[in-house]
């Protein structure tokens, strides 16, 4: 069995061994359910647009919460020494933990399919393509946030510090779209390209461009590499 997969399995088990994962999932589902249900009744519209608008915001809290302990806890309890002296590469440790958090995000998204089923039953004229793209976009978004969360978790032995750091990094990419009104014109292009929302809304509109894919993939690689470097660089401690 692949070494990273063994780490992933261990982390997923440990998620569901503690109440924390259940609590985070339940809160996520309650909030997303509420944001799905209120326009359904108020506007009498059966669509997922509001949901897709709100989940990126929920992820801003949800993803740091599930990634915060992945490495920092091992540093705190000293088990990182155990793990690092087993015949496994640091990159495999990082990848294993990364896939564990992506899986949990996937599970969270999977539960929201219940809303999809609801609108299939209630609505007519459903744009399946847009919904499919929306989910792809959300998964991409969750994956990028995970990579950022893993990095934040790798640079500290304190889970709360990790939570705060990942929250602010994600928040930075998240608010870039609002900054576009205040910055000089020649910077708008760059800021827009850096804004995570720009790429996300492109994808949810059904336009999956290579530029969007390159953006997401390069952010993921960047933060995972940074996490790996920080894990390898334990020497100064």
């Amino acid at each position: 069995m692949n070494l990273a997969a063994i780490i992933t399995r261990k982390e997923i088990k440990s998620y569901f061994n503690s109440p924390a994962a259940y609590i985070v999932l339940v809160i996520f589902l309650l909030l997303s359910g509420w944001f799905f249900a209120s326009p359904l009744f108020i506007n009498n519209q059966a669509n997922l647009r509001t949901l897709f608008g709100i989940i990126p915001l929920l992820f801003l809290f949800f993803v740091p919460a599930i990634t915060m302990g992945l490495i920092s806890r091992e540093k705190n309890t000293g088990t990182i020494e155990l793990l690092a002296t087993l015949p496994i590469k640091d990159s495999q440790i990082i990848m294993g933990k990364f896939w564990a958090s992506v899986s949990l995000i996937g599970i969270g998204l999977l539960f929201t399919l219940i809303h999809f089923i609801t609108i299939v039953i209630l609505g007519t004229n459903i744009d399946f393509g847009a919904i499919f793209c929306g989910y792809i976009g959300l998964l991409m978004l969750g994956t990028v946030y995970s990579a950022i969360g893993i990095f934040a978790s790798s640079i500290t032995s304190n889970q709360i510090v990790s939570l705060i750091i990942s929250f602010f990094i994600i928040f930075f990419f998240f608010i870039l779209k609002f900054s576009l009104f205040f910055i000089p014109d020649f910077l708008v292009g760059i800021f827009q390209f850096l804004s995570i929302d720009y790429h996300f809304s492109n994808i949810t509109r059904g336009v999956i461009d290579t530029r969007n894919i390159i953006y997401f993939v390069s952010l993921i690689i960047l933060f995972l590499k940074l996490a790996q470097t920080s894990l390898e660089n334990r020497n100064w401690k």
Partner: peptide
Amino acid sequence: YLPEHNPLYIDM
């Protein structure tokens, strides 16, 4: 290797 302070995954 048995590290100092014997770190273990205590929830397993």
